[in-house]
Simulated scan of single mutants.
Amino acid sequence: MTTLGAVYRPQLPPENLRSVVLAAEESGVDSLWLWEDCFLESGIAAASAALAWTERLKVGVGLLPVPLRNVALTAMEAATLDRLFPGRVTIGVGHGVQDWMGQVGARVSSPLTLLREYTIALKALLAGERVTTSGRYIKLTDVALDWPPHQPMPIYVGGLGMKTLDLAGDAGDGTILDASADLDRVRTISGSREHPVIVYVETDSRDRAFVTDLVTQVAEAGATSVILQQSATSEDPEGFVRFVGSLDGVSA
């Protein structure tokens, strides 16, 4: 059965996160997703707080922009979260918005190469391996985590273009599609891989019948998780996650 989640957008103030997290926990939302958009909020810091405030809620960070973060640091942070909150953390990585990466001096000439090297190295570190690699962008010498996850931690890869989504299918443990993906794109991606496919769906509606139909269509197209997000200008994120919680169980 397809699971349902919601997004807490980083355009909303960090100090408002707690009430939304608690609403998600209480209303039965399966997962709450956080984004690391420049120059708004840290995905890892927000995830750590959300996990600490709750007992059962799963928290996803999607996506972490790989040009902005050293792969060893991401591995350390992800492993720490997984050891503190086993089985409740999902990490997604992606290119990051190229204009933002340029603003901070982190833009690379081949984002695809970086993302592939990064994903492979990150997965190996989180599997407890000792890694030495000298790629075009990722260079590690005898690096291993002292506190790796007890079990290898899945890494999701997200993107827009087919080259990136092909990479997600090859190198990732799951794929994340943003709200620009139509049903045909969801069907194509879901049908081409055996791992989970998470799909963001933007809606401000709280019409139960409309949203139920929307979720069902995306689920039937092959999504394993449908994550509902409000527009950046919407208000009452707490009420929205409670509404999402009331929909649990409606998908295919």
Rank of each mutant, 00 (worst) to 15 (best):
R69F: 09
R69N: 04
R69M: 05
N70H: 13
L73Y: 05
L73M: 15
T74N: 06
M76Q: 08
A78Q: 11
A79G: 13
L81C: 05
D82H: 14
L84H: 04
L84P: 03
L84F: 13
F85S: 09
F85Q: 01
P86I: 07
G87A: 05
R88K: 15
R88L: 08
V89N: 05
T90G: 01
T90M: 10
I91L: 11
G96Q: 08
Q98L: 13
M101G: 02
M101A: 14
Q103N: 12
A106G: 13
A106K: 15
A106Y: 05
R107W: 04
S109P: 00
S110V: 02
P111F: 04
L112T: 09
R116I: 02
R116A: 00
R116G: 06
R116N: 03
E117C: 10
Y118L: 04
T119N: 01
T119E: 00
I120P: 00
L122E: 00
L122V: 07
A124Y: 00
L125D: 03
L126Q: 06
L126A: 03
L126E: 02
G128L: 10
G128N: 02
R130Y: 00
V131Q: 06
T132E: 05
T133R: 13
S134P: 11
Y137P: 15
Y137K: 10
I138M: 00
I138V: 15
I138Q: 06
K139E: 12
D142I: 12
D142T: 07
D142L: 13
L145Q: 09
W147F: 15
P148S: 02
H150S: 15
Q151M: 06
Q151V: 03
M153C: 11
P154F: 04
P154Q: 06
P154D: 01
P154A: 11
Y156C: 07
Y156V: 12
G158R: 07
G158N: 06
G161Q: 13
M162E: 10
T164W: 06
T164G: 11
L165R: 09
A168N: 08
A168S: 15
G169V: 07
D170M: 14
A171Y: 00
G172L: 10
G174R: 11
L177E: 12
L177H: 07
D178R: 12
A179Q: 14
S180C: 05
S180D: 11
A181P: 09
A181W: 11
D182S: 03
D182L: 07
L183V: 12
D184Q: 14
D184V: 12
D184N: 15
D184G: 06
D184R: 06
R185P: 04
V186G: 08
V186H: 07
R187E: 03
I189F: 04
S192I: 10
